[in-house]
Amino acid sequence: MILKLILGSIVVAAAVIGAIIANGAEVGVFAYLALLPPMLLMPLGMLTAGPGFKAIGELFFLIRFGGGERDRNLARATLRFFDKSLAMTAILCFIVHFTAMLKNLADKDAIWPNLAWALAPSLFALVIHVAVSLPLTHAVEASGTVESSPAPAETKPSFTTLRLFGGMAVALAGIVSFSPASFASWLFVDLSSFLIIIFIPLGMLLAATGSASFKRAWASLNDPEASLESLRKARLAYRYLALSFRSAAMVGAGMGFVLMVKDFLERTRVGPSVALIVISALWSLLLMSVVALPLEAAAERRSLEIGGAAFHS
């Protein structure tokens, strides 16, 4: 299956490159190789922090040898999370380069090439989805049906703090690798954005759940004997954490847009307003991607491992 996947991916990539060339556009192959680190490292980091490498191995085992409905639910959850990681990578790469582009609007000739480069990760993510995710999804659904193995009585939790932080580090490295100069130049440091990013999620969490629910959710992930009910509550807690980060991004973007419209004729105020939009979105979505989504995925996987129902976010 792995060989077929590689061959199919090569054919899809060749088709895309051939279509671009046939359209008369130039393809800077070496330039586009710069997209590989973020498009590989961030999904890899998110998968490591969330479902883990074990999930990937089980997916290919299911495709080759078959399995039961429990095994398919685990594989489906892994593929859904992989698609989500691709989407978040594309969005974050766009925000990173779009922010850098806004800093250099004086060069009119560079605006459209820069915008195209900001959109390139989205195309890359779509190609990976078409060449990898969709074939794997079909293979999972078409896999043979055998009696699903019972959930193992683990002596240690499948989720570990080391795996979480290791995956987070890899994912962050992937995003930084897309534009190291922008991160090194403190381009993404903005006090007003940080106030939004920190205190809106904090306020939402205090209003709805408090710290106790997250302590219980964390304990459930690290408890090999956690019940389905405790894992269900853990999934909901981390899902709400993701919602709080997403809400912070929306509030920051909305506030920045309102301020930008208000001070549109005062050019010195437009820059800070735009910075509030893009920087609050960047850090909120980045925190959601490397913290909340992997934790939610880990809780869902733990639940599925012991026979829980599939959880669709």
Rank of each mutant, 00 (worst) to 15 (best):
F98H: 06
I95R: 01
F98C: 03
E141I: 09
A153H: 09
N114C: 03
L136E: 03
V127G: 01
I111Y: 04
G68I: 09
K108R: 11
N73C: 05
A153V: 10
R72N: 05
A142E: 15
T145K: 15
D71P: 00
F94C: 04
D109K: 12
T78S: 11
A125T: 00
S85E: 09
P150C: 01
A77E: 13
A142S: 15
L119G: 03
L79C: 07
L136H: 11
F82H: 11
L115Q: 06
L105T: 13
A75H: 06
H129L: 12
L126S: 12
F98G: 02
L136N: 09
S143T: 00
F94M: 13
E147I: 15
A116G: 10
L105K: 02
L74N: 05
V96R: 01
V140W: 03
L126W: 02
A139H: 04
A90L: 03
P113D: 08
I111M: 10
L119F: 14
S85K: 05
G68K: 06
A110H: 12
D109C: 00
A90P: 03
P150S: 12
A120E: 08
V130N: 01
T89Q: 06
A118Q: 01
A125R: 06
C93M: 12
S148V: 12
L119H: 04
A118T: 08
T137E: 14
E154V: 08
F94T: 05
N104S: 15
V127W: 03
I128E: 07
K108Q: 14
W112S: 00
L79M: 07
E154H: 14
L74C: 00
N104D: 15
H97E: 13
L105A: 06
S133N: 08
A100C: 01
A77V: 04
P135L: 08
M88Y: 07
A110N: 14
F81K: 02
S85M: 11
P135N: 02
W117R: 12
N114Q: 13
K156C: 00
K103Y: 12
E154M: 11
K156L: 10
R72W: 04
M88A: 15
R70S: 10
S143P: 05
T99L: 04
K84W: 12
E69K: 15
P113Y: 10
D107M: 08
H138M: 05
R70Q: 13
P113L: 08
K84N: 10
T78H: 03
L92P: 00
I111C: 02
V130L: 14
M88S: 09
P113E: 11
L102S: 04
A131T: 06
L74R: 13
G144W: 10
A125Q: 05
T155I: 15
K108E: 15
A77I: 02
C93R: 01
D107Q: 08
R80V: 12
E147N: 10
N114H: 07
E147M: 15
T155S: 12
A100F: 11
L126N: 04
A120R: 11
V96A: 06
A139T: 01
E69F: 14
E69N: 13
P135F: 07
S143H: 05
